[in-house]
């Protein structure tokens, strides 16, 4: 177990591991999300109270769950980075922050879009909404702090400290609806009571579980990709980067100039690169 862990933590083997895992996770995540969204929009029945407005739940709840989960993940990675000085964990903190920030913003905005038709207001300053907003600022702090330093390691370790201190906010966000009288409703699925006595009909639950698990798979896929970038950027001079990154199929991206062809093209990779070319009309070139 430990040797496996240590092997994985070494940049080259992590890089190859991520290359193998990320396409599967991405495909799975997008598939689950597509089916879940279709189910949420067209198959699930309208709610007895909120009518069709409740369908925002299939976007809002996965985004909110991820916003909390990613911050906890950052804090755990930060603790590992600070205690064992593991480079991969440092990269993990930095790579997770922008993804977490985007999902926190999504949770806030979809929450507003849900609140207007149901509560009657886009925004109220109750405990859940305020603490989620604070969470967004914590993410922005980590991103800003990472960019403020020229040395990547110092930056990542400073971010790790911030992630550790900020994690105090996570239980406040989650339990705010229980601790305070709040306009926001309680947890539908992420609480003990809800497991004992389901609070949502199964015809409405399954799309939610699909989008929820799909979002997590998607997060892990893009997180691995960001981690790979982070690792390569730090080790740009190392031999393994030359051997396994530049020779690997992904180098096909730059093959147009160098005329070199990757040895074995993974089909999922190919399609991703195709999408990348399409999505790049005013891109980095």
């Amino acid at each position: 177990m430990w040797t496996w862990f240590h092997r994985l933590a070494s940049p080259p083997s992590f890089y190859r591991f991520a290359d193998r895992l990320a396409p599967w996770l991405l495909g799975l995540g997008l598939l689950l999300l597509a089916v879940g969204c279709y189910g949420g929009l067209f198959i699930a029945p309208a709610d007895y109270q909120q009518g069709d407005a409740f369908r925002v739940i299939y976007v809002h709840v996965p985004a909110a769950a991820l916003s909390l989960f990613v911050y906890v993940l950052m804090a755990v990675a930060g603790a590992i980075a600070l205690v064992w000085r593991m480079k991969l964990a440092e990269c993990a903190v930095v790579a997770a922050a922008p993804i977490g920030a985007s999902f926190t913003a999504l949770a806030l905005v979809t929450g507003m879009l849900w609140g207007k038709p149901t509560w009657g207001a886009y925004w109220v300053w109750d405990a859940r909404l305020t603490s989620e907003l604070v969470l967004l600022f914590l993410y922005l702090g980590v991103i800003g702090l990472n960019q403020a330093y020229s040395d990547a390691r110092t930056a990542a370790r400073a971010c790790a400290w911030l992630a550790l201190v900020g994690v105090v906010n996570v239980p406040i966000v989650h339990y705010s609806v229980q601790w305070w009288n709040s306009l926001h409703q309680g947890s539908t699925i992420l609480s003990l009571e809800a497991v004992r006595d389901p609070k949502i009909s199964s015809s409405m639950l399954w799309p939610l579980l699909l989008t929820l698990s799909g979002s997590f798979a998607f997060f892990f896929a893009v997180w691995l990709r960001r981690l790979q970038n982070e690792v390569v950027a730090r080790e740009r001079g190392a031999n393994w980067v030359r051997d396994c990154v530049l020779q690997a199929p992904l180098a096909a991206v730059s093959n147009e100039q160098s005329g070199m062809t990757g040895p074995e093209l993974d089909p999922s990779m190919q399609s991703r690169q195709g999408r990348q070319r399409h999505g790049e009309p005013r891109g980095a070139d």
């Binding site: 998607f218 990154v245 180098a251 730059s254 990348q276």
Partner: peptide
């Protein structure tokens, strides 16, 4: 939009990285 942003940004970053490495 958030999914797309999360998907494309690492790919662009990777392109830029590979180019500079090459």
């Amino acid at each position: 939009a958030v999914l797309l942003w999360n998907l494309l940004l690492p790919l662009w970053r990777r392109r830029a990285l590979l180019r500079s490495l090459n």
